[in-house]
Simulated assay, not measured.
Amino acid sequence: MMNPSSPQPGTAGAPVAAAAGDYKVAVTEQRTGQILVFDRNDPFTDHHVRWSFSTGNAPGWTHPFEVRFRDTRRYGAIALMTFGKPGEGRAGIVNVTAKNHLTRSDLLWTARITSYPHSIERVPHAGTVVVAGSRDRLHVFGPSSSDPATLKEVQTLTFTKAHAVLWDDQNALLWVTGGKVIRTYRVEGTLRAARLHRHGPDITIAGNGHDIQPDYARPGTLLVTDSHHVYSVDKARRAVRIVARMPYVKSYVRHARGQAMWTADPDIDDSVWGGSTVHFSSGGDRSRPGAQIYKARIYTTLFH
């Protein structure tokens, strides 16, 4: 069983070379209802799948939107995932190290989410799990112990078009984007007493906020996407600058070695939310014919 890659952050503000790296990439493949992990430099074919989670496209489990890998004391690496369609979705957690190919029978925890769940994150010190429902809310789940099976919803906050959540372990903040807003929250309390509280002024962006990722090449900054832009966000100064313009970008991240990776919707007029290609700034793109790839993630448990 593979271990999550651990890219080492570079120096904030230093020039970053776009070197092709050898790391693992997780994709959310919506046509087949799978999350698939590949080596970045391998073909993205069935033969080269290193790890997978398959839903069977069961009701509520269609269209994987998010996958995040996080460390826990109890299980080691876990995967947090969201799936679904408007009115019927799921959030779930699996033990990554259990075996190479998992299904819904391997879930440690799952919850029905009717607000079209697009993203999920775990706040480690609190044991809290936060799900962004892209219609209009944030769902906060707290456990009664270290067992994810004890998670239950303890708070619901209004957040129109909430699309992405990310924990910032450097500043102890939860970052959220949706609509034309980037917002931060403090997490106070632990387990089922954990609650989110708004912190600091909102940051305004031009389009519909879609994704938040660390910039592993520049600690202290985040990468945020909307319908037509990629932004670099200085976490300490809450300052935003545009680093790329591209249509309908769904996810964007930069490896510690400087290589950028992104996904986009090649045809906004169809009913599919992604394409068959994961794009890289160097070293060649990777395609999976017939796939509908929504997001691509660096396979790591690091927050920055």
Results as ranks from 00 to 15, higher is better:
Val187Asp: 03
Gly179Glu: 02
Arg122Tyr: 12
Arg31Trp: 06
Phe141Gly: 00
His228Thr: 09
Arg137Phe: 04
Met246Asp: 15
His139Asn: 08
Ser251Tyr: 05
Ser145Tyr: 09
Arg238Asn: 08
Leu196Glu: 01
Ala291Pro: 06
Met81Glu: 06
Asp202Phe: 05
Tyr185Gly: 02
Asp285Trp: 00
Val67Gln: 05
Asp234Thr: 05
His229Val: 04
Ala194Val: 04
Lys250His: 09
Ser119Gly: 13
Gly13Phe: 11
Pro15Gln: 14
Val37Pro: 00
Thr156Phe: 06
Gly13Ile: 10
Pro117Ser: 08
Ser144Thr: 15
Thr204Trp: 13
His139Ser: 13
His101Val: 08
Gln259Ile: 01
Pro64Trp: 02
Asp42Ser: 12
Phe53Thr: 02
Leu157Asn: 12
Leu222Asn: 01
Thr62His: 06
Gln34Met: 08
Arg183Ala: 07
Arg186Pro: 06
His210Trp: 00
Tyr294His: 13
Ala194Glu: 05
Ala91Arg: 00
Gly33Asp: 02
Met1Glu: 13
Arg50Lys: 11
Ala14Thr: 09
Tyr116Met: 05
Arg31Asp: 11
Ser282Ile: 06
Ala98Pro: 02
Arg238Thr: 09
Phe69Tyr: 11
His199Leu: 08
Gly209Gln: 01
Arg70Ile: 13
Pro289Thr: 12
Phe141His: 01
Val176Tyr: 02
Arg31Phe: 10
Asp136Arg: 04
Asn100Pro: 07
Arg31Asn: 14
Lys235Gln: 13
Val129Lys: 03
His48Ile: 06
Pro59Tyr: 10
Ala193Ser: 14
Ala79His: 00
Ser271Arg: 15
Ala98Glu: 11
Thr97Asn: 15
Arg195Ala: 05
Val176Ala: 10
Tyr231His: 00
Gly13Pro: 06
Ala77Lys: 00
Arg104Ala: 09
Asp267Val: 11
Ser119Trp: 04
Thr184Asp: 03
Gly275Val: 04
Ala244Trp: 07
Ser5His: 03
Pro15Ala: 14
Ser227Leu: 13
Thr160Ser: 14
Arg192Phe: 09
Gly56Gln: 10
Pro117Trp: 03
Pro15Leu: 13
Lys85Asp: 14
Arg288Gly: 03
Gly21Ser: 11
Ile78Val: 08
Thr11Lys: 08
Ser52Cys: 05
Lys161Ile: 13
Trp262Met: 03
Phe69Asn: 01
Arg74Cys: 06
Leu196His: 02
Arg257Gly: 13
Gly283Val: 00
Thr300His: 01
Arg257His: 12
Gly258Asp: 07
Lys152Met: 11
Lys250Asn: 13
Gly10Thr: 10
Asn3Val: 12
Thr184Trp: 03
Ile212Leu: 07
Val243Cys: 14
Pro7Lys: 05
Pro201Gln: 10
Pro15Asp: 14
Arg112Asn: 14
Ala12Gln: 15
Leu302Thr: 15
Asp211Val: 09
Asp106Ala: 09
Phe303Trp: 06
Arg186Trp: 12
Trp262Phe: 04
Pro214His: 00
Asp168Thr: 11
Gly92Trp: 02
Gly60Ala: 02
Pro43Asp: 12
Gly33Lys: 03
Asp136Ser: 07
Gly89Leu: 02
Gly275Pro: 02
Arg257Tyr: 13
Gly76Val: 07
Thr204Pro: 07
Ala12Ser: 15
Val249Asp: 01
Gly274Lys: 04
Thr55Glu: 07
Phe44Val: 03
Ala77Ser: 12
Ala194Gly: 10
Val249Cys: 10
